[in-house]
Each structure stands twice: as structure tokens, then as C-alpha cells.
């Protein structure tokens, strides 16, 4: 793991409305190559934190450093399309809980559209490159049978898979996955994670996994951050969390360590 800072949050607050903070004063640092799990139950503030981290929502207080870019509370009054520069967004692969697949085009057309917006469509060479990358991605994620279908024609698990595959479109340096196990069966999950491991092998790429699935987090992320009612209650190695006497352990203990 290198010392390059990917995210550094300092006393960040954010909320969905102007009057209420969903989480208060969150501070942490994530370095390159780390695999971090954001854990917590509903209303813990994980979802909003993910949105803040990938530039979809501005922080209302505090500062957030992402790679070499720093944004603060002044971002709240800027255009939300420009919360993060495009060069920073190009380094992120984001798969949020709501898949957000473009409903009026097929999966393949949606991927190609995003590729063209990122790299341009000025000549045939770029268009051919877009087709090649998209073909490779569909092959890698076994999406060949659904790539010409629109999202409305897909099952929830196919939609989820297509959403996660889209995060790999630009070969991201950081992968943010929100509830990736939702709607996906056990076998598909194993296949998905073996594929992620294969793609990220020896590349020191960062993975941030936001989930309620402690078993998934136990398997794939050595570092855990546990959120409760908008507060970061634990940040450390997963084994250390087991040693704490946090109430949530009563729930997850039989899940992680079935007798």
C-alpha cells in the first residue's frame, strides 16, 4: 500500500436538507490500495457519505480532499455538476444502490455514450476504441446476452450487474460500490468478486464498499468503518471491531461466526 492519499475528510458534515445534518463531523483518511468497508444499518448516513465522496452532494461544513483536489463548504453554493473536476471523476468507478441505467437506450448504447463523453467522439479511431472497450466489458461481465436490451427488460440482478460493470468502463483507480450484494445471488457474487480481484490484482487500486452485509465486508475488506446514526463509531481493522463491545456485534456475531 502506498502513502498516496485518495480521500481525506476533515470534520465533514452533510445533509439532504439545508436545516438537518445526516452525519456530523466525519474525519478519516483513505490511502491508495486500501479496501475499506462502510458498515451500518439504515439511517446511519452511509448513503449520503458515498454521494459526498463521489461529488454528487456538497459537504456543508469541513473539507474533503480527493487525490489533489480539495473542496469545502463553499462548494454548496456552486453548480453541483462541477463539485469535482472531470479529471478526478475519471479516476472513480461508481456503482450506487440505485442503478441509474439510462432507460431510453440499451445497456451497450449507454456504455458507449458514457465512453464518448469521457474520451470524445471526434474521429473513427475513438469510436472504434469505444466499441472495443464496451465489447470487452460485456465479455468480462458475461453481459453479452443482455447488452442490446433496455434496462426495463432486465431482471434486478442483471440491472445490478450492468450497473457494477459500468463502474469499470474507464478503468478506475478507485471503485465505490454501494450495496453490491443486493439482488445478486451467491454464485453471481462470487463470480463478480473474483472478477474484481482479477482486474485489480497487483494494481494497488482502492475499493470502498458500503454495505449492511457484514459477511461480504469480512471477506473482502480488511479495514472497517462503522457508522451509527450519522456518527463514525469505529475505524480500524475488522478484527479489532470484533474485540469491541458494540451492540451491533450481537447481531452480526452469529452471521460471521456461525456455530
Amino acid at each position: 500500500m502506498s502513502d498516496e492519499i485518495v480521500w481525506k475528510l476533515d470534520n465533514v458534515r452533510a445533509g439532504y436538507s439545508a436545516s438537518e445534518d445526516r452525519f456530523e463531523g466525519v474525519s478519516f483518511t483513505i490511502e491508495r490500495g486500501e479496501r475499506v468497508a462502510f458498515l451500518g444499518t439504515a439511517k446511519s448516513g452511509r448513503k449520503l457519505l458515498m454521494k459526498v465522496m463521489c461529488g454528487l452532494r456538497p459537504p456543508r461544513a469541513g473539507t474533503m480532499q480527493i487525490f489533489d483536489h480539495t473542496s469545502g463548504a463553499d462548494a454548496y453554493y456552486r453548480d453541483w455538476d462541477d463539485l469535482l473536476p472531470r479529471r478526478i471523476k475519471a479516476k472513480l468507478g461508481v456503482a450506487l444502490e440505485v442503478d441509474g441505467l439510462l432507460s431510453n437506450v440499451s445497456i451497450r448504447e449507454g456504455y458507449e455514450l458514457l465512453f464518448r463523453f469521457r474520451y470524445g467522439d471526434h474521429n473513427e479511431r475513438l469510436q472504434a476504441a469505444a466499441s472495443k472497450v464496451v465489447d470487452g466489458l460485456c465479455e468480462q461481465f458475461s453481459l453479452n446476452t443482455i447488452m442490446h436490451k433496455r434496462p426495463v427488460e432486465l431482471s434486478p440482478s442483471e440491472r445490478k450487474l450492468a450497473c457494477i460493470a459500468r463502474a469499470f468502463l474507464a478503468r478506475p483507480r478507485v471503485l465505490l460500490l454501494e450495496n453490491p450484494s443486493e439482488n445478486i445471488g451467491q454464485l453471481s457474487q462470487m463470480k463478480l468478486w473474483s472478477m474484481i480481484d482479477a482486474v485489480f490484482e497487483n494494481q494497488e487500486r482502492t475499493i470502498i464498499l458500503s454495505t449492511e452485509d457484514f459477511r461480504l465486508a469480512w471477506r473482502h475488506c480488511p479495514r472497517w468503518m462503522v457508522f451509527d446514526k450519522g456518527n463514525l463509531v469505529f475505524d480500524g481493522q475488522k478484527e479489532d471491531f470484533i474485540k469491541t463491545r458494540h451492540p451491533v456485534l450481537k447481531l452480526i456475531d452469529p452471521v460471521l461466526f456461525p456455530r
Binding site: D79, W80, G100, L102, L114, R118, C163
Partner: peptide, 22 residues
Amino acid sequence: ASMNSNGEIDSLRACGVSPLSY
């Protein structure tokens, strides 16, 4: 509004596509 509701606008923003331009 339905694109917003389905998370399509957020996913465009996250992928670096400005909804204003597109």
C-alpha cells in the same frame, strides 16, 4: 423528473457527464 427519481441523473454526474450539457 423520472430520470432524477431513477438515479439516472446522479449516475450521469458520477460518470462525469454534465446533465446540463446532455
